[in-house]
Write a protein that binds this DNA or RNA. Structure first.
Lengths: 119, 119
DNA sequence: CGACTTCATCGATGTTTGTCAATATTCGGG
DNA sequence: CCCGAATATTGACAAACATCGATGAAGTCG
C-alpha cells in the first residue's frame, strides 16, 4: 500500500489560489525519483525492453551487449542500476549472468504515476 | 497510437537463449527517456504533485516556491523542464505565471510503461 | 593445474544536471 | 513615466553520471 496522503498544514494567505495542500512529501518524492531516474536513460530502457521481450522475461548479458552497441562494462553498469532500483534480478548460472524482470515492478511504477495525477 | 513494434531481424546464433527480438528501438527509447528524465527529480515530482492537487490543476509560481523550499530561479528552471517535456503548460495572467497540468500527459506515460513490460 | 570465457569492479574522463546570486524582462499602479 | 512586484534568463560551480579501457573474480573445460 503506497497511499499518497494529503498533508494538511495551516498556511498564511498567499497571493492567488487556496490550493489543496501538497500531495506527496519530500521523502516519497525521493523514492519515486530514484526509481524513475533508473529508467530515465535510453540504454536502460532498451535493456529492460529486451529483457522483457525475451522468453521467461530473462536474458544473459551476452545477449544484451550487441543490441545496445555499448561496451560490456557499460552494459553491466546499467544492469546494476536497474537491479538496485528493483526492476531486475540477477541469477548466475555457470559463467553466465541472467537478468530477469521483477514481476509487477514496472506496473507498480506505472500505477504510482496515475495516482499522482488523479489524486 | 504509440505501438511498440517488434523488430524482426535475422541474427546469428548467439550463446544462450533465442530471444524474441528487440521491442523498442533507439529512437523510441530516446523519446521515452526524455520524458522520464523530466519527472525523475524529487523537486519536479513535488511540483507536479502540488499543481495536480491545486484547484483546476493549476498553480502560480508564487505558490510553489515556499513548499519546495528552493530559490525562485531554481523553481522556474524546474517548471520550464516540466513544460518542455509536455507535462505542464504556462499561462501568464497579469504579473503571475500559472502552470497547469496537461490532461492525460502523466497517464500516457503511465500506459507506456505498462505496454513496455507486458509486450 | 592452466588457459579461456563471462561478467563485475576500478580509475579516469568528458558531459550533464541541480542550484544559487545577479541581472533582465514584463506588467500593473501611482 | 517611473517604481515595485513576479518571473525568466544568465553565468558559475560542484555533484552526479555515462562511458571506456584495464584489471580482477569466478566458473568451465581440456
Amino acid at each position: 500500500m503506497t497511499t499518497l496522503l494529503a498533508i494538511a498544514e495551516p498556511q498564511a494567505t498567499v497571493c492567488c489560489a487556496p490550493l489543496t495542500r501538497e500531495t506527496i512529501d519530500a521523502e516519497q518524492a525521493d523514492v519515486l525519483a530514484r526509481k524513475l531516474k533508473a529508467l530515465a536513460d535510453p540504454t536502460r530502457l532498451r535493456l529492460v525492453s529486451i529483457v522483457a521481450a525475451s522468453e521467461g522475461e530473462e536474458a544473459c548479458v551476452c545477449d544484451l551487449i550487441e543490441p545496445v552497441g555499448l561496451s560490456q562494462p557499460t552494459v553491466s553498469h546499467h544492469l546494476k542500476i536497474l537491479m538496485e532500483a528493483g526492476f531486475l534480478t540477477r541469477s548466475k548460472r555457470g559463467t553466465w549472468a541472467y537478468y530477469k524482470l521483477v514481476p509487477g515492478a514496472l506496473d507498480e511504477l506505472s500505477q504510482l504515476l496515475e495516482v499522482t495525477s488523479q489524486r
